[in-house]
Nucleic acid binder design. Structure first.
Length: 106
DNA sequence: AAAGTGACGCATT
DNA sequence: TAATGCGCCACTT
């Protein structure tokens, strides 16, 4: 059970048609079950997702705070990611996700 | 054990 | 709004 697995677990909880940010995930993991972790950096969350190649993890529902998609290393490229989000009903404003309407609030 | 690395975030400019 | 600089934490050599 590594830190990565917990990140993936949270990502899998994101309902269809919703998105969340790296920062939000970091906050959610701030108080781990074992209490071993105190602070998590959003950077670390993104890094965890980068390492993940599991198709069951909806990484495309995770965007940065500006609603922008991962520039360099999206799973299938930015365009594909955007397309998938649109297919789920996630609204876009230009090239950015409409976070105001689609941010996932557990 | 120490240094390098990265799907980010925030305050400034 | 976009571009810069700095902090951040877990993981891999």
């Amino acid at each position: 059970m590594s830190f990565f697995d917990e990140v993936y677990k949270v990502v899998k909880l994101i309902p269809k048609g919703k998105v969340t940010t790296y920062g939000e995930i970091a906050l959610r993991l701030r108080s781990g079950p074992d209490g071993s972790r105190i602070n998590i950096s959003p950077r670390t969350v993104g890094w965890a997702l980068h390492a993940n190649t599991d198709p069951k993890t909806p990484c495309h529902r995770v965007v940065n705070k500006d609603g922008k998609l991962a520039a360099n290393f999206a799973f299938d490229g930015e365009r594909e990611q955007k397309r998938r989000l649109l297919a789920e009903g996630v609204g876009f404003i230009g090239e950015r996700v409409n976070l105001v309407k689609h941010i996932w609030m557990p």
